[in-house]
């Protein structure tokens, strides 16, 4: 999780990702930042994120993103 929080802060500095629960709705993450995030996640966690994973529900909070990574690892 710490590794993910580090990536999130690199993509969007200045956001408290431990508290934010509506990253898409509040406009913190848009499609461009999602792509930057996914590219970094694929690299760091060595998982394959497909376009099918790129749904708003997977990017609502740091927890949901982490869950998506764990599913991709399985």
């Amino acid at each position: 999780m710490e590794e993910l929080l580090k990536i999130l802060n690199e993509v969007k500095p200045g956001v408290d990702f431990t508290k934010e629960k509506d990253l898409i709705g509040s406009g913190i993450l848009d499609s461009l930042s999602i792509i930057q995030l996914v590219t970094k996640i694929s690299d760091e966690f060595d998982v394959e994120i497909t376009p099918l994973d790129l749904v708003p529900e997977n990017f609502e909070s740091a927890e949901t993103i982490y869950e998506m990574i764990q599913n991709a690892e399985d």
Binding site: S31, I35, T39, S42, D43, I49, T50, P51
Partner: peptide, 28 residues
């Protein structure tokens, strides 16, 4: 266009390669 062009293109092998290469040669 986001779901059927932007995401698949961004996550395609050549674009991921481009991303990695950019990471190596340029800043964050």
């Amino acid at each position: 266009f986001k779901d059927y062009v932007f995401y698949p293109v961004s996550l395609s092998a050549p674009f991921l390669k481009l991303s990695k290469s950019a990471q190596k040669h340029f800043g964050k």
